Simulated scan of single mutants.
Amino acid sequence: MSMIGAYFRVTAAGLARALDDPDGALAHIEEVLEAEAEADPPPARARHFSTYKSWHLLDFLLKRSGFPVDVVHGEAPLGESGDWGYGPPHHLAPDRVRRAAEALEALTYDRLLDGVDPAELVVAEVYPSSWNDREALEWGRYWFDGLRLYFRAAARDGDAVILWVH
Rank of each mutant, 00 (worst) to 15 (best):
D59Y: 14
T11L: 07
A154E: 03
P89A: 08
R148T: 11
E80V: 13
S2F: 15
A27C: 07
L33Q: 13
A12R: 08
V122K: 14
F144M: 04
H90C: 09
D133R: 14
G66R: 01
G5W: 06
A106F: 05
V69H: 05
G115I: 12
A39D: 14
E38V: 13
V126E: 01
Y150R: 08
Y109G: 02
W131S: 05
E34L: 11
P43N: 09
P77Y: 08
Y109S: 04
F67S: 03
L15F: 00
D59N: 15
S81Q: 06
H91F: 02
H91S: 03
E30A: 12
A18V: 02
P94Y: 05
A44C: 15
Y52A: 14
G146Y: 01
W84G: 00
S2L: 14
A13R: 12
P22E: 03
P68I: 07
E36K: 01
R47M: 12
R9N: 07
P43I: 08
L26Q: 09
K53R: 11
L61E: 00
K53S: 13
H91Q: 04
G66F: 08
D159Y: 07
P94S: 03
H90D: 06
D59G: 14
P77M: 06
G14C: 04
S130I: 12
R9A: 11
F60T: 00
H48S: 14
A35K: 10
S54C: 15
S2M: 12
G115D: 01
Y127D: 05
D40K: 11
D83H: 09
V126D: 02
L78H: 02
I4C: 10
S54N: 13
A44L: 12
D59H: 11
E138W: 13
D23Q: 12
V116I: 13
V71K: 07
H166M: 15
W55P: 04
M3C: 11
A160G: 04
D159H: 15
V32R: 01
V97D: 00
D83V: 04
A39Y: 09
A103F: 05
L58A: 08
H166K: 14
D21W: 10
A154F: 00
G82T: 02
R98G: 14
